[in-house]
Design a protein around this nucleic acid. Structure first.
Lengths: 200, 200, 200, 200
DNA sequence: CATGAATGAGGGTTCATTCAT
DNA sequence: GATGAATGAACCCTCATTCAT
């Protein structure tokens, strides 16, 4: 048996996933994880270098996908391929749906339970991307002062992502999830102009 | 000698407020708080039963106000005084603004830094209220299936509150804050009907 | 009581001194030290930041003295005050004797039990000083090839210091120690020329 | 199948030798040794009872030789064959040279890296022998008080051995080593009488 | 014979809480 | 009332050793 037993490794990751999800990274102890994996503390360290590596094991598949998406999306911009915001919406929605199908809990951990780790900034990097698109594609054109538009873009980007995460957290059924994500998009981005009409 | 006691108590609370805000509840230690209060560790425990009590001391004024508001708001409903959603918006906005003026940091701590404590659910209680109002005042009337409307109400309520918190966290100037909160309301609640028109 | 209780601090240092001396730094555990101090593990950390700080507490008085001596001695050289080797012998002997009177165990720990710590190189720094003096004052003048003289200077310097340490380790009586150190000097440095005469 | 076993055993010993020399006994782990031997951890324990046994495997050839030499040398004494110190010098030098040719690293490990093991005292046993010879052959005849002569004999014996070890550690070339060892002998033992003359 | 996964005791360290003074 | 020293449980991590396969 050349390779470390996959079963144990998976047990650890499964236990860690559950515990990181429930308690967050900091409050889940290696002892917890070991006990939930049915092994001893020392043995965890045969499979993972340290606690953060366990987190990495849990979260990195999703992390990589998101980072790839961000990189890809930014390369489009640099290449001058100015997609419409509509396109961007469709693009990011389909990405998120796809990732969620495979890695629902992992995604939630990555975005909610990695305080104090190197994954902490993933959320803000994704937000940064969305924020730029919102600013360029939507708010810049509205009759807002520029700094206000910028600020608002940030708030909306965060809020949109937060909503996405909430929906994912609450929806285990993928059909329903898809539906809700589309609704979310409509809710967040349709008819922006008229919302801010002063005569309302 | 109430006076002296109150001064020490306030010193503790002031230090705790600062530290909970900066580091979060879990990462702020009693030692930190004691040192920043100019008193000793042991003495903290004369004023507060344990660490969570300190949090309570910091957060309860704001907590009470919010709970009072929730209770009041719900009593209106029970009394059959059906205000319009417009009224509710104005009402909650003004409440939030008012509370923020006095208790900005406390509010942020209550909503962002109480993971693992009994205040964790404050947010969800407030959300629950908003959720009901959104459901009754807005989504029920839209052409959505009922459970979807309910679910969506929750998501939007959370998201709206989240946005409020973000704006409060980022805005120290009260004039600007007021402006942004109104914008937020417009963004979240104006022209809901047309957002979900299928022909879009 | 403004200052941490000196008695406990001293108990820790005394226990640590004993254990570092007996087992060396690495094999003496904080748990050991705590038990021998009559306190708990956690309390050690009220008095010392970490394990190396405990070592520092034990060893730094002697460390400082030796570093001061080295610095002083080197400043003489830079100033061109070329003392005879005879003078150097007297100087270093009296220094060592003086330090040993106050800090016998500490000196032994510093030179024998600090592997892997920042004090590890103290011995080699002192050796370096002695080595230079031996080379300049003694071996350079002998009919040896230069690199051999240099090499030999190093060996003798180390060996001399080692002997000093041994004598100190075995001799608790200061009168006897003094006598033995003088003998050691005679043994090491008198009549060097004739020792290497080929006709012997 | 003795052959195969021997090969593995030798691989372990070779790896252990290298690692004990580089890191010292305590800091070289069984995992390290196994990896460097190209076998597995568990298998090490088929060839050696425990970690100390591995050390024994590495060090015992040299250990035996030294013990044999000590026994032989002592049997001469008991038989009343009083050799001169000169003879003893030649004898021990040639022994050491011979051993070093075969077992340089092992010798260095035995004398430098066995702290906390049962080999710790090998050095002192050899020292004891040298010490006796020095006492009988040299210091007894000097105008020293007897206990002083005894004590000094011990110190010089240790120091001489220490110097030998240093020279061996620093000198890989056997020709040079031989030369340095002769120099060392001259340095340590020639003209002892005149060194301690009071008129110096 | 060999594997390497598993164990368990021990390492350094932190911190909420208690208690003698 | 106040002090701050002391406690003890828990944290992450390492490693010699064992054992099922």
């Amino acid at each position: 048996m050349q390779v470390l037993k996959d079963e144990v490794r998976n047990n650890i990751l499964t236990a860690a996933k559950k515990l990181f999800y429930q308690k967050g990274y900091n409050n889940a102890s290696i002892r917890d994880i070991a006990k939930n994996s049915g092994i001893t503390v020392g043995n965890v360290y045969r499979y993972f270098e340290n606690k953060e590596s366990v987190l990495e094991g849990v979260v990195s598949p999703v992390y990589e996908k998101i980072m790839d998406y961000i990189a890809l999306s930014e390369s489009y911009i640099k290449a001058g391929e100015n997609k419409s915001f509509e396109d961007f919406r469709n693009e990011i929605n389909s990405y998120i749906l796809q990732i969620t199908k495979e890695f629902r809990l992992e995604l939630l951990i990555l975005f909610k339970g990695t305080q104090g780790t190197r994954f902490e900034k993933t959320r803000s990097e994704l937000i940064s991307l969305i924020e730029n698109r919102i600013y360029e594609g939507l708010f810049k054109r509205l009759s807002m002062e520029d700094d206000e538009a910028a600020f608002f873009s940030k708030i909306v980007a965060r809020s949109f992502l937060e909503s996405l995460i909430m929906v994912i957290a609450e929806t285990e059924d993928n059909r329903k999830l898809k539906k809700m994500i589309y609704r979310l998009n409509d809710f967040y981005f349709n008819h922006l102009n008229s919302r801010f009409d002063p005569e309302d």
